[in-house]
Simulated scan of single mutants.
Amino acid sequence: PADHAKSHMVKRLAPLFDLFINDAFAVSHRSHCSVVGFTEVLPSIAGLLMDKEITALDKGLKGDEHPTIYSLGGTKADDSIKVIENVLRRGGADKILTSGVVATVFLMAAGINIGEANRKFVEDQEYLEQIPIAAKLLAEYPDKIAMPVDVALNKNGERIDVAVSALSNDLPIADIGLETIVDYSKELKDARVTVMNGPAGIFEQEKFKLGTSELLKASAESDYSIAGGGHSVAAIEQLGLEPKFSHVSMGGGASITYLSGEPLPGIEALKKYALKVRKA
C-alpha cells in the first residue's frame, strides 16, 4: 500500500513539472517518495547545495591531502564506528581522534576499566556489541586511532580531570581531559583536511563544553574544515565559528551515512537516471 500511494503521488504530480531537482542532501539518506519517486519519470539533476555537500564530503573521504584528520565524538558510537571502518579501509584518514561515547567504547575495547557507571551507559545505549568491532579496528590500525589520555569526570556537576590510567572511581565521563584537548587540538590545527562529527563531551553544560569548543576552534584553523551535521552544527553556531569552517553540512544523518560509505537512496536515484540518459 505504501508503494502504491507513492506511485499514485508521482503519477498525479509529475505531469505538472518539466524537471526534478534534488537539492535536499539532508533527507537523501531516506527513501521517501519526494526523494526517489520522480527520477523515474522526469529529467532529474542534483541541485547546487547537493553538489556542494558531495564535493566537500568527498574531500574528506578521499584523503588525498595529508594529513586528513577525523574527530569523531557524540553518543552515536555505532554510526561513528561505521565511518572509522570505511575511511580507514579506503585509506581516507591519517588519524582518527575519538571522544565522547565513541572514545568510551574504544577505551573498553583496549581493556581499560572505565568504571561501572560508564560501562552501564554503554550497555544501556546497546553498544556492547560495538566493543569487539572497535577491538578489531585497534588491532588492524594501531597507529591510526587515538584515544583520550585523560577525561573529565562529572562529580555532582563539578569537573574533575583524571588520567585514563587512574579511572578507578565510579563517576560518569563528561568530556575529554585537558591533556587530550591539547594533543588533539595540535593534530587538528596542523592538518590539511579535518572532518568533525559529534561533540567531545556534554557540550550543553558549561563545565563540560571545553573539549568540544577547543576541538572545533582548532579544526577551523586547518586548511580545509568539514563539519558533519547535527550537534556539531549547533556547537559551531553557538561558538560563532560558521564563517571559519570550509563546509558545514546541513545533514546530520545523511553526512554520517555518506561518510560510512553506505549508499544514499536520493543520490543513487540520480545516478540511475544519469546512467539511463548516457545509455540513451
Rank of each mutant, 00 (worst) to 15 (best):
His4Arg: 09
Ala5Arg: 12
Lys6Ile: 06
Lys6Ser: 14
Leu13Pro: 03
Ala14Thr: 06
Pro15Met: 10
Leu16Met: 15
Phe17Ala: 15
Leu19Tyr: 01
Phe20Trp: 06
Phe20Leu: 05
Ala26Glu: 14
Val27Ser: 14
Ser28Tyr: 09
His29Ala: 02
Val36Cys: 11
Phe38Leu: 02
Thr39Ala: 13
Thr39Leu: 01
Glu40Cys: 08
Glu40Lys: 15
Pro43Leu: 08
Ile45Asn: 11
Gly47Cys: 03
Thr55Ile: 10
Leu61Trp: 11
Lys62Val: 10
Asp64Arg: 09
Pro67Met: 02
Thr68Arg: 03
Ile69Ser: 00
Leu72Arg: 01
Leu72Val: 05
Lys76Thr: 00
Ser80Pro: 00
Gly92Thr: 01
Asp94Thr: 06
Lys95Asp: 05
Lys95Trp: 08
Ser99Thr: 11
Val101Trp: 03
Val102Trp: 02
Val105Cys: 07
Leu107Trp: 07
Met108Glu: 12
Ala109Gly: 08
Ala109Leu: 09
Ile112Gln: 13
Ile114Val: 15
Ala117Gln: 06
Ala117Ser: 11
Asp124Lys: 15
Gln125Asp: 03
Leu128Val: 10
Pro132Arg: 07
Ala135Tyr: 05
Lys136Thr: 07
Leu138Met: 14
Ala139Tyr: 01
Pro142Trp: 08
Asp143Ile: 12
Lys144Ala: 11
Ala146Met: 13
Met147Ser: 00
Val151Leu: 10
Leu153Cys: 04
Lys155Trp: 10
Glu158His: 11
Ala163Gly: 13
Ala166Gly: 13
Ser168Phe: 08
Ser168Ile: 09
Pro172Cys: 02
Ala174Asp: 14
Ile176Gly: 01
Gly177Ser: 07
Leu178Glu: 15
Asp190Met: 12
Asp190Leu: 11
Arg192Asn: 15
Arg192Tyr: 08
Val193Lys: 01
Val193Thr: 11
Asn197Val: 00
Gly198Phe: 06
Gly198His: 04
Ala200Thr: 04
Ala200Met: 12
Gly201Asn: 07
Leu210Trp: 13
Thr212Lys: 00
Ser213Glu: 15
Leu216Gln: 10
Asp223Met: 10
Tyr224Ala: 04
Gly228Asp: 08
Gly229His: 07
Gly230His: 12
Gly230Pro: 08
Leu241Arg: 04
Phe245Gln: 00
Val248Ile: 09
Ser249Gly: 04
Ile256Ser: 01
Ser260Ala: 12
Ser260Leu: 05
Gly261Ala: 04
Pro263Asn: 04
Pro263Glu: 09
Pro263Trp: 05
Glu268Ala: 15
Ala269Val: 08
Ala269Lys: 07
Ala269Cys: 10
Tyr273Asp: 01
Ala274Phe: 05
Ala274Lys: 12
Lys279Asn: 13
